[in-house]
Amino acid sequence: MTLSFIQNMGGGSIIIFLLFGLVYGILWIYCLVDILRSDFKDSNMKIIWIVVILFAQLIGPLVYLAMGKSTKITTYS
């Protein structure tokens, strides 16, 4: 079933899916590294954000980018 779906998609669709996957992978890694390098107001927030990123695969990084900044400690140097 899946093999025939891929064969009928054509070359352009496969490239779009690969680009989407690459962009999503880069976004996921960026969010995970940002969480690990950041300090949060609550010490448990780092663990909570990691769990959100790992288990909410599609919307986890988007939720972190939208809401994560308000839970970080901002330091100005």
Rank of each mutant, 00 (worst) to 15 (best):
residue 1 M to G: 05
residue 5 F to R: 13
residue 7 Q to M: 12
residue 9 M to S: 13
residue 11 G to K: 13
residue 11 G to P: 09
residue 11 G to L: 11
residue 13 S to D: 09
residue 15 I to S: 07
residue 15 I to D: 08
residue 17 F to C: 10
residue 17 F to S: 06
residue 19 L to H: 02
residue 19 L to K: 09
residue 20 F to I: 13
residue 21 G to E: 05
residue 21 G to S: 09
residue 22 L to C: 15
residue 22 L to R: 10
residue 24 Y to M: 12
residue 25 G to I: 00
residue 26 I to W: 03
residue 29 I to W: 15
residue 31 C to T: 13
residue 31 C to V: 02
residue 33 V to M: 07
residue 34 D to W: 08
residue 34 D to M: 08
residue 35 I to F: 03
residue 35 I to G: 07
residue 35 I to Q: 00
residue 36 L to T: 05
residue 36 L to G: 04
residue 37 R to E: 14
residue 38 S to R: 01
residue 38 S to E: 11
residue 40 F to I: 07
residue 40 F to A: 07
residue 42 D to A: 07
residue 43 S to A: 14
residue 46 K to V: 06
residue 47 I to N: 05
residue 48 I to E: 10
residue 49 W to R: 07
residue 52 V to Q: 06
residue 53 I to P: 03
residue 53 I to S: 10
residue 53 I to F: 04
residue 53 I to D: 00
residue 53 I to N: 08
residue 54 L to I: 04
residue 54 L to G: 04
residue 54 L to M: 05
residue 55 F to D: 10
residue 57 Q to M: 10
residue 61 P to L: 06
residue 64 Y to S: 00
residue 67 M to E: 12
residue 67 M to Y: 05
residue 70 S to P: 03
residue 70 S to H: 11
residue 71 T to W: 12
residue 73 I to R: 11
residue 73 I to W: 04
residue 74 T to V: 08
residue 74 T to N: 13
residue 74 T to L: 13
residue 75 T to H: 13
residue 76 Y to T: 02
residue 76 Y to M: 09
residue 77 S to C: 09
